[in-house]
Amino acid sequence: MRLQYSSNIRIIEMPCSGTIDHRVLLQAFEDGADGVFVAGCMEGDCHFQKGNYRAKKRVNAVKKLLDEIGLGGDRLEMYNLSAAMGPRFAEIANEMTERIRQLGPSPLRKNKAGTSRKEGDVA
């Protein structure tokens, strides 16, 4: 197909959009992403029945959280497309890139990060 889409996109593969977790999305922003989009399967086409619907709910919850903490929920979006929809993927990648360009770089990148440490499992 030789479709072109913005080269600034880094793809992180997940076994199913239903495995998306609030922590993974927040980590992407903490690690310096200007924007994140979750590409789940078409609604009604989930191999695991409800994975993409669950992803959508979580994405919406994190969008709300991003608004609350001042980063802005517009930097995160959920899209539904199948693995066979290459042109649509390129279109979304460009659309999201354009949206983030208008919002500007993540304000987090200007400031130094605080460290975090997780102390094992349940104590």
Binding site: G114, G120, V122
Partner: peptide, 22 residues
């Protein structure tokens, strides 16, 4: 993570340690 992001946006980074007790 939310608190770290908030504080980083304010230019006042926060260091966090997390644990869950039984």
């Amino acid at each position: 993570s939310s608190l770290r992001i908030m504080r980083r946006l304010q230019g006042n980074p926060l260091e966090t340690v997390t644990i869950t007790a039984t």
